[in-house]
């Protein structure tokens, strides 16, 4: 039985974290760009909770949700995004290149589809070292058109590697709708070409995600080989911070907002035995955690010359 209250806490944490980032961008505190997963929180939390903390994760450019769902230190993630020395990568990586080996998080990845072979390699290592750990890689519908997706699924299937491929299908690769980019319409049918199971699930319902991922992970851990999980979801925000969203209608967005994964879970919690006071307090504590993290990160120093120029080689 998953801990639904803690799932809820982290979904609110992720949402608030990104809303806070959005504010900070507005104030000019953050540089570069950032890709928010507002609306997709249930995918990260549901899959990651179905895994063990020792299973390795690889994420993509839209990775804040995966990082916080895995339980990374919020202030250290925020610090990394601000380019501060307290960040997980001392400010070198930022949003799209954030790694936390102590949390079995092998990194977010700024190249669309770039993390898929890396995760396949992690799965190779775990099998080669005869462990019962698995690798999980998150990517979007856009990445599923890269060669690395097809090559890696093929190799993983041939070599029966312990890996779960998670496609978060938010319907748009930047501005390009899946109808224009994916010949099969959805991603899951592609699994058949690589002789592995693949199915699409509702990515707005964290329990559905958790159940689907749990089943897949049990199969994979048992030596059954890789699997493709497609989660139908939606990002309420733009692709990145400066996206006027000309490629979709406000009506479509409003319709999708009616299915907000946080609201869906919030409405379910009373039936699971949680009273409204507990729910309110949980959400509040998540919001306070983000505020505190932002405060800590803002106050932290940036690195010096050595942090910029040293350590290219091990």
């Amino acid at each position: 039985m998953p801990d639904f209250l803690d799932m809820y806490r982290r979904m609110v944490l992720i949402r608030t974290f990104e809303e806070t980032l959005s504010d900070l961008f507005g104030k000019g505190v953050l540089g570069g760009t950032s890709h928010f997963c507002i609306g997709q929180e249930a995918c990260a939390v549901g899959v990651i909770d179905a895994a063990r903390p020792t299973d390795w994760l690889v994420s993509n450019h839209r990775g804040h949700g995966h990082l916080l769902a895995r339980g990374l230190d919020t202030a250290k993630v925020m610090g990394e995004l601000m380019g501060k020395i307290i960040g997980y990568c001392r400010g070198r990586g930022g949003s799209q290149h954030l790694c936390a080996m102590d949390k079995c998080f092998l990194g977010t990845n700024g190249i669309t589809g770039g993390g898929i072979p890396i995760a396949t390699g992690a799965a190779f290592a775990l099998k080669y070292q005869k462990t019962d750990r698995i690798a999980i890689v998150f990517f979007g519908d856009g990445a599923s058109n890269q060669g690395t997706f097809h090559e890696s699924l093929n190799i993983a299937s041939l070599w029966k590697l312990p890996i779960l491929f998670v496609c978060e299908n938010n319907l748009y690769g930047m501005s390009n709708p899946t109808a224009k980019s994916c010949a099969s319409g959805t991603i899951a049918p592609r699994a058949a070409a690589y002789a592995m199971p693949g199915a699409a699930h509702d990515g707005f319902d964290v329990q559905t995600v958790y159940d689907a991922a749990s089943q897949a992970i049990a199969r994979i851990r048992g030596g059954g080989g890789p699997e493709l999980l497609e989660l139908m979801t939606y990002r309420f925000c733009g692709h990145s911070k400066n996206d006027p969203r000309v490629y979709r209608t406000r009506e479509e967005e409003e319709e999708m907002r009616q299915r907000d994964c946080i609201t869906v879970l919030e409405q379910k919690l009373p039936s699971l035995g949680y009273d409204s006071e507990t729910i309110t307090q949980t959400a509040l504590s998540a919001r306070q955690e983000v505020a505190k993290a932002a405060e800590v990160a803002l106050a932290a120093p940036t690195g010096g010359l050595a942090d910029a120029t040293e350590g290219v080689f091990a």
Binding site: G114, P117, G121, F124, A125, G147, T148, E151, I155
Partner: peptide, 25 residues
């Protein structure tokens, strides 16, 4: 000795991922 399909980018990336976890490809 791991013979791969003809997929240079992915088996090179696979080597990177495996190396990060202690394999020496």
């Amino acid at each position: 000795i791991w013979e791969t399909p003809i997929s240079e980018n992915s088996f090179t990336g696979l080597a990177v991922g495996a190396a990060m976890l202690g394999v020496r490809p």
